[in-house]
Design a protein around this nucleic acid. Structure first.
Length: 512
DNA sequence: CCCGTAACGGTTGAC
DNA sequence: GAGTCAACCGTTACG
């Protein structure tokens, strides 16, 4: 009964597989159709082909990826159901998520207010941040005889560090030995007993010898190396240059450790976790600090956001809907009635390319299918009449990743904004993040017209997520989304098998 | 039966 | 680039 409208069309994937040349186009046929298109939202014959790689079935019949977080949609649904008074055991059964996981997610939510999973991987954050090092340097300059343990005490008493991130005495000693020592050099201007460098010193520096056998080398280059100059061949990127913007409209220089060699930073786009407060004539612009705390709540005020949830929403744009980045993208999707592939042959949607989002879109009823959980907990779909979109946006599936506008751009996973209507540019990179929320969901909108942020529609998730979670109230979907993904209602209404679907689906097909 | 939690095997990313 | 390590994940079993 349910059949994708794209089922008669080739499905184009943007495959990360190098041998695929980046793009894979697959025409559905009798052998791969079950994997490419959901049957009642379920991908049949998928676990068998992909369970070696990812996708397992728990005791409740739910699909999970070992080691990876549940989709945000399910995490949100768990919290929503709990707030409706549904018992955790019932939530567990309904969503086919283990009760331990439900318990953990709810406990985390109650404790932190966040439904997002924690930061996976990586190392502990460094305690010897530039500010701490500078403070230590300052202490040492003011009192050259100060002991490391005294510095440690002062870091605490001056509230530069707390008991959790204060460096150890040995760390302070190492900093003093490796980084602070040259500050006390008599030729260093930071030294209270500063002695101007001699001509010989300057000559030595300009000679390009570059060899600094010890931190008290007379070369000024050595003196300033850790903080002022990057030695030749240093892996540290150079200190960012001061922007050329007018002084009253200028982001402060970012300490160089925040910079990396990522594509987005090469292009000058800050990471979402970068803390870049922007000031205009001395006043900090609210919302321009895109800092993303590990479990923090990034609250973007919006008048449409119910107060009960407004303080609980995070920056969804940064998190893939299933934790793992889908290895394939289906880009032949309908965008506001037009095939995406028609809009952009390269599978990228730019803001400029998206059809205008006119607020004069007449009220219309979509025949878009939205899946729902039936009483017997089988996943079914049914046509749902969707109210006219607010402000002309067309929504995607209510519980697929695009509900939150999550898509992956050059800066990781971004939310999607069609780029119509007034764009409020922000500094430093004209990125705007706006979060709105419907009755059960949230949309983040980010636009970046300076960088012409491209959007790759993750159809693989779009196809899969409806089978992972389905709202009980299809009318409660949020309706603002620039990309409309239509699910035809011609697919056969087939009773799903517990072991017949996983996240693989089109992904495995595309990467095969 | 429900719920909290430790153990387990797995993934991830910084170092 | 591979290895190590410590964080996280969801499932499972136990009390």
């Amino acid at each position: 009964m349910m059949q994708s409208p794209t089922q008669n069309q080739p499905v184009t994937f943007s495959s990360p597989h190098p041998g695929a040349g980046g793009i894979v186009s697959i025409m559905p046929n009798s052998t791969n159709s079950a994997q490419m298109f959901p049957q009642n939202g379920i991908y049949t014959n998928v676990v068998r082909s992909t369970e070696q790689t990812f996708g397992e079935v728990n005791q409740l019949g739910g699909i999970f990826v070992n080691g990876r977080p549940l989709p945000n949609t399910i995490r949100l649904r768990i919290v929503e159901l709990a707030q409706l008074g549904i018992r955790p055991c019932d939530i567990s059964r309904q969503l086919r998520v283990s009760h331990g996981c439900v318990s953990k997610i709810l406990a985390r939510y109650n404790e932190t207010g966040s439904i997002l999973p924690g930061a996976i991987g990586g190392s502990k954050p460094r305690v010897t941040t530039p500010s701490v090092v500078n403070a230590i340097k300052d202490y040492k300059i003011r009192d050259p005889g100060i002991f490391a343990w005294e510095i440690r005490d002062r870091l605490l008493s001056d509230c530069i560090c707390d008991k959790y991130n204060v460096p150890s005495v040995s760390s302070i000693s190492r900093i003093l030995r490796n980084k602070i020592g040259n500050v006390l050099h008599p030729h260093n201007p930071l030294n209270p007993n500063y002695v101007p460098a001699t001509q010989e010193c300057m000559k030595e520096m300009s000679s390009g010898s570059g060899a600094h056998p010890h931190p008290y080398c007379t070369s000024p280059a050595a003196m300033y190396t850790p903080y002022m100059m990057q030695p030749a061949g240093s892996k540290q990127p150079p200190m960012p240059t001061v922007p050329t913007a007018p002084g009253c409209f200028r982001a402060p220089a970012i300490p160089y450790p925040l910079y990396s060699h990522s594509m987005s930073e090469i292009l000058g786009i800050p990471r979402f976790d970068q803390q870049i407060p922007v000031t205009i004539c001395g006043a900090t612009i609210p919302g321009t600090n895109n800092h993303y705390p590990p479990h923090g709540t990034m609250v973007i005020p919006n008048e449409n956001m119910p107060s009960a949830m407004s303080t609980k929403m995070e920056d969804w744009s940064r998190v893939p809907a299933y934790g793992v980045t889908p290895p394939a993208q289906v880009t032949s999707v309908n965008v506001n009635g037009s095939s995406l592939s028609e809009i952009d042959k390269n599978s990228n949607v730019t803001h400029e390319n998206i059809p205008p989002n006119t607020h004069s879109v007449p009220p219309q009823t979509h025949s878009t299918n939205y899946a729902s959980i039936s009483e017997n907990n089988y996943l079914t779909t049914s046509p749902v009449s969707v109210p006219p979109p607010v402000s002309g946006y067309q929504n995607s599936h209510p519980y697929m990743s695009h509900q939150y506008g999550a898509s992956q751009g050059i800066n990781g996973w971004h939310s999607v904004h069609s780029g119509h209507g007034p764009q409020r540019a922000i500094s430093p990179h004209n990125m705007m993040s706006q979060m709105t929320q419907g009755p059960t969901g949230t949309i983040i909108q980010i636009s970046d017209h300076n960088k012409q942020l491209t959007i790759k529609v993750r159809m693989a998730l779009a196809l899969w997520l409806p089978s992972m979670f389905i709202p009980s109230n299809s009318n409660s979907i949020s309706r603002r989304h620039p990309v409309r993904l239509k699910f035809d209602n011609n697919a056969p209404n087939k009773k799903p098998s517990n072991h017949s679907h996983t996240t693989g689906s089109a992904i495995g097909t595309a990467t095969a």
